[in-house]
Design a protein around this nucleic acid. Structure first.
Length: 724
DNA sequence: GTTAGGG
DNA sequence: CCCTAAC
């Protein structure tokens, strides 16, 4: 490698190789057919290309001088090549490793370059140049094949998604990490016998088949199944991409021709063409331009080769960044990329959402309806119109699959387009001197505006506080009926008396009444508080989002530092998989019926109170339950961030309150009609299975941390000191 | 900033 | 849902 680069030093006149055909590659094609088989090749004096042995490679690398060997795999680490089905092995690969790899690699190369005698270079230039051409042409072919193969793989992968065995291994994902110790307080029940015996009966005897979320709610083992994820699939997908990135690196290294990182996106059907940017034809000045545009800074380096390499590396990084952003990683990166995207960025979880939908789609093919039934979350998102199934084709560019996030969020066209756009962004928006200066997408702007205006919501449907268009009631009703009739969990809401509410609260007077106007209805302190509340909520929504990302970042670190499955990690730019992200996008949506301005009314005592409470929908309840199952009770903030991050209302406290109520309800359910005591209405409103599940979870959590804590307020008997 | 609990 | 003491 060093040799190759060296030869090129100072000679940018190297004619663009007539790469292609006629090359001896035809003969040796098989040898290099599999990019994964021969990363390294050596060039004979006759120009022929032969696969190099590991020893030879090693020799080459050690000596650092040209001995006819050319390493085409900067990442010469993994000796045995992986066959296409190794998702497990690679899933722990960290992109960071990859990044580091590049850096160190580059530096190493620089080192070598500097130590190569110039005369040597001159002497071998001619010969090497010729070989380079051969190699280039060969590599191009290899690459082409690799792309084809990948394309094929993707197709295959798409169909295999549903076959992932670990898909159903419920505990898997949940046990993965971040299962903090739940607070026993949230799970104490009236005796363990309740959970043990009473529960099954309840769930099975549920008199509300319509609302029965099926086995999901009734069967314990399934509790966390919904939180599982297709890790393998995910890894696999990203892995492929990663590989492609690696395999392409050599091209950049050879300097023969640099391909814009964007064009390397595996999802792209046309691997190269016009996007190609031949840095070789650029002058120093131009290279400087490119460098500057890539790194945002000037460089005094005159070495063309160095510049080219740096630029290439920069592109690679940007490309990688694109992948990451696609997976809703660092907001900074994402934002930056978004600038290049015309698509809307509904919410943090958009991208995965659509991907999730895709995956589910694929999974459905294989597993059928089970997929739906298995996840309460899926059930929750059962909004007909929301089911915008995306095209499986998108999978190729998608990174993470999330079982849960499937669809509900906003698998809108925007979401789907998002992925494609990301590709485009990286792909086309990357001219040599191209600037990625595009204004932030609307979403961000609006949010900023909201924040800046002191929490005054924009009258936008997507605004958590904006009043949705007047279709609220109707659509709500429709949803309700339809869903109930079909498959369970609907957006039915539970009022204190088990009546459907919500839509009725929406009337002309309240419609379009944003918080900004509300102050008129209140006065003095009340007004201030109202605004404060709104601002607070807005802020919360923000932090909610941001913290969620932070959280992801944190998890990422965890993974980077060698997560649970850090086994044979590979130095491939595999998109980090964040287990917690699996639970994140709450299936709940910010749909019309869930949106209402946070209206408050002054109370007698001078305080204010939310005018309309948002009745918890079954979806929300189920989400909450799942969240508790996943994070444990007491981790309200976590649950909020993970599952309710998309919902402006429903604070962590709300979740806590709701859970408390659920506990009470579930408990009440166990003691039916107690001495003529008028049963609480809500018990009737919430489907028995759910309550059963609540009890189940409570008992479950209780078991995990029995009486470990001496001063615990709980006891086996189930009685809790603090319970009311 | 979160959580637990009382109002 | 609100409020707030207590982490």
């Amino acid at each position: 490698m060093a040799m190759l680069e060296a030869t090129e030093d100072g000679s940018d006149t190297r004619p663009t190789p007539s790469r292609t055909e006629e090359s001896p590659a035809a003969a040796s094609k098989q040898s290099v057919d599999d990019r994964l088989v021969y990363k390294l090749v050596k060039v004979g004096d006759d120009g022929s290309v032969l696969p190099a042995t590991e020893d030879e490679v090693f020799q080459s690398l050690v000596s650092g001088s040209g001995n006819g060997l050319s390493s085409f795999d900067p990442d010469g680490s993994d000796g045995g090549e992986d066959d296409e089905e190794d998702e497990e092995d690679e899933e722990e690969g960290e992109d960071d490793d990859e990044g580091t790899e590049y850096d160190t690699d580059d530096e190493d190369q620089d080192e070598r370059d500097r130590h190569i005698p110039l005369q040597d270079l001159a002497a071998q230039r001619q010969k090497l140049r010729a070989r380079l051409q051969v190699l280039d042409s060969m590599l191009l072919k290899v690459d082409a094949e690799a792309q084809q193969r990948q394309a094929a793989e993707r197709d295959a992968a798409g169909n295999d998604l549903g076959h992932e065995d670990n898909y159903l291994s419920a505990g898997d994902g949940s046990g993965d990490k971040r299962h903090r110790r739940p607070n026993p307080k949230y799970f104490d029940f009236e005796g363990g016998e309740d959970a043990a015996s009473g529960q099954p009966a309840l769930s099975s005897s549920s008199g509300e088949p319509m609302l029965t979320p099926t086995k999901e709610t009734a069967v314990s083992p399934r509790v966390t199944s919904g939180w599982g994820s297709h890790r393998s699939s995910v890894r696999s997908a990203s892995t492929h991409r990663a590989r492609s990135a690696v395999t392409q690196k050599p091209f950049m290294r050879t300097g023969a021709k640099v391909v814009s990182p964007g064009s390397m996106a595996p999802g792209m059907s046309s691997p190269v063409p016009h996007d190609d940017v031949s840095l070789d034809n650029l002058s120093i000045r131009e290279l400087h331009e490119a460098f500057k545009s890539t790194y945002g800074r000037e460089t005094s380096v005159k070495d063309k080769h160095w510049l080219k390499r740096q630029i290439s590396a920069g592109w690679m990084r940007q490309r990688d960044a694109a992948f990451k952003s696609q997976l809703q990683l660092p907001s900074k990166l994402k934002t930056r990329l978004d600038q290049g995207s015309h698509a809307e960025q509904p919410l943090p979880s958009v991208s995965p959402t659509s991907v999730g939908a895709i995956e589910r789609d694929a999974a459905n093919e294989a597993n059928g309806a089970e997929f739906h039934k298995d996840s309460a979350w899926n059930g929750l998102e059962g909004k007909g119109s929301q089911h915008g199934m995306t095209t499986p084709a998108s999978v190729s560019t998608g990174g993470r699959f999330d079982v849960f996030n499937t669809g509900s969020l906003s698998s809108s066209g925007a979401a789907r387009g998002q992925i494609a756009l990301y590709g485009e962004v990286v792909n086309t928006g990357e001219p040599v001197g191209g600037k990625r200066q595009r204004k932030p997408n609307r979403k961000y702007i609006e949010e900023e505006a909201e924040a800046a205006s002191g929490g005054t919501p924009v009258n936008d449907n997507r605004s958590p506080y904006g009043e949705p268009e007047g279709n609220g009631l109707d659509s709500s009703s429709n949803y309700f009926w339809r869903t109930v009739e079909t498959d369970g969990p609907a957006d039915m809401t539970f009022g204190r008396h088990g009546t459907l509410r919500g839509s009725t609260l929406r009337n002309a007077s309240s419609k379009n009444m944003s918080v900004a106007h509300k102050p008129k209805l209140v006065s003095g302190i009340a007004k201030r508080k109202t605004e404060g509340r709104a601002a607070k909520l807005v802020k919360m929504a923000h932090s909610s989002r941001s913290t969620r990302q932070d959280s992801e970042g944190a998890v990422r670190k965890d993974e980077l530092s060698g997560g649970p499955g850090d086994r044979a990690s590979v130095l491939l730019p595999v998109v980090p998989f964040d287990p917690s992200s699996v639970l994140q996008p709450l299936p709940l949506d910010s749909r019309p019926e869930n949106e209402q301005p946070i209206a408050t009314v002054p109370t007698a005592n001078g305080g204010t109170r939310r005018k309309h409470h948002r009745p918890w929908t079954l979806r929300e309840v189920m989400t909450l339950v799942e969240g508790v199952a996943r994070c444990g009770g007491g981790k309200w903030a976590d649950i909020k961030k993970l599952a309710f991050s998309n919902v402006g209302y429903r604070t962590a406290v709300d979740l806590k309150d709701k859970w408390r109520n659920l506990l009470r309800a579930s408990r009440a359910q166990l003691h039916p009609a107690k001495q003529g005591e008028r049963k609480k209405q809500f018990t009737a409103a919430i489907p028995a299975p759910i309550l059963a599940r609540v009890r189940e979870l409570a008992a479950l959590q209780n078991q995990i941390s029995p009486t470990a804590v001496s001063g615990s307020s709980t006891s086996r008997s189930g009685r809790t000191v603090h319970r009311k």
